[in-house]
Amino acid sequence: MDSLVSTEWLANEMGASDLRIVDCTKHLPGTGRDPLAEYEAGHIPGAVFMDLSDLVDSTHPVENMLPPAEKFASRMQSLGLGDGSRIVLYDDSAVKTSARAWFMLKMFGAHDVAILDGGIAKWKAEGRALTQGKESLRHRHFTAWQDDSNVRTKAHVLANLHSKDEQVIDARGAARWSGAEEDPRPGIASGHIPGSFNVPFTTLYNADGTFKDKAALKATFEGAGVDLGKPVITSCGSGVTACVLIFAMHLIGKDDAALYDGSWTEWGNDPDTPKAVKA
């Protein structure tokens, strides 16, 4: 299974015993949207709902940090996602939350994970079937395992300011990256990590919500000044759209990209971290 699958591919594979479809929609605060209610009102047949708001480290002072391996494995088992499953993720979120779910599943040991290109919006636009209510699958064993080699902490990023071993790419919109627009979270500074490049995650998609082709993805990163031959750390507001950058780089064969999980929520909230703005 490819890492990016089409609606046509999914429609043809539905019913396969090892296939698991997952709605992992999460919305930004203030949208007034309820992802679980939307899922129950209409989802791709067979899909279970992954609650990303619960898949966090509830003991960490920074919001939306990656959960412990045992908690993640337990939640996957209860969804019926287990060792040997082929997992297809989709969302209906403006911040493309399926990429965050993909990153976590890969980090915690799942091998066969894909994102549905265009998400449920494309599925609906093509007039494909939807199901209402809530799906429940038999529990399956998910081995608790963790590889955090592609995760960076604030200490890592601070050290990298001097070593410059890794490039930092920020997935936020240009106005927030430059500091022209205030951060929506109270108490969080404006601006960006010094030396970081800006590749807004929205620039990686076509108008219909599908990913750009490989050549266009490559051109988008290079056009922002990124050297694709060197390792990368991605950042955003709270570690969600940074995963879109990682997934897009994976699509073009670049797998040495790491996630700064605390992202600007952590960096911008610390008065001691250096911040840059662009006039």
Rank of each mutant, 00 (worst) to 15 (best):
M1P: 05
S3H: 14
S3F: 04
S3W: 10
V5H: 03
E8S: 07
L10N: 02
L10G: 02
N12W: 02
E13Y: 04
G15S: 08
S17H: 12
V22C: 11
V22S: 11
C24S: 15
T25V: 09
H27G: 06
H27Y: 15
L28S: 11
G30N: 10
T31M: 09
G32Y: 05
G32S: 01
L36V: 13
A37L: 13
A37K: 15
E38I: 01
Y39M: 10
Y39G: 08
A41E: 15
I44K: 15
P45I: 15
A47P: 13
M50W: 14
D54Y: 06
L55T: 07
V56C: 15
E63G: 00
N64C: 05
M65L: 07
L66M: 14
A69I: 05
A73Q: 12
M76G: 10
M76E: 05
M76V: 06
Q77T: 03
Q77S: 13
G80A: 02
L81C: 12
G82N: 05
G84Q: 10
G84D: 13
S85N: 12
R86W: 02
Y90C: 04
D91N: 15
A94L: 07
A94K: 09
T97V: 04
T97H: 07
S98C: 10
W102S: 12
W102D: 08
F103V: 08
F103D: 03
M104D: 08
K106T: 11
D112I: 06
G119H: 14
G119Q: 15
I120F: 04
A121T: 13
W123I: 12
A125Q: 12
G127T: 10
R128F: 06
A129H: 02
Q132A: 11
L137V: 03
R138N: 06
H139N: 08
T143R: 11
A144G: 10
Q146R: 13
R152I: 00
R152W: 01
T153Q: 05
V157P: 04
L158D: 01
L161V: 03
L161C: 02
H162I: 06
S163F: 04
S163V: 07
E166L: 07
Q167R: 08
I169G: 05
D170G: 01
D170V: 00
A171S: 15
A171I: 10
A180N: 15
P184Y: 05
P186A: 02
G191E: 06
H192K: 03
P194L: 04
F197C: 04
N198P: 04
V199Q: 07
P200D: 10
T202N: 11
L204C: 03
Y205R: 14
N206A: 07
A207R: 14
A207N: 10
D208M: 05
T210F: 13
D213N: 15
D213L: 00
A216T: 14
K218M: 03
T220P: 01
E222K: 11
G223H: 13
A224Y: 03
D227P: 00
K230M: 09
V232E: 00
I233R: 03
T234D: 07
C236Q: 13
S238K: 00
S238Y: 00
V240W: 02
V240L: 01
V240Y: 01
C243T: 11
C243W: 04
V244H: 06
F247P: 04
H250G: 09
L251N: 07
L251M: 14
I252F: 00
G253C: 07
A258T: 07
G262K: 08
T265C: 04
E266W: 10
E266Y: 09
W267R: 01
D270S: 12
P271E: 09
D272C: 01
P274W: 05
P274Y: 06
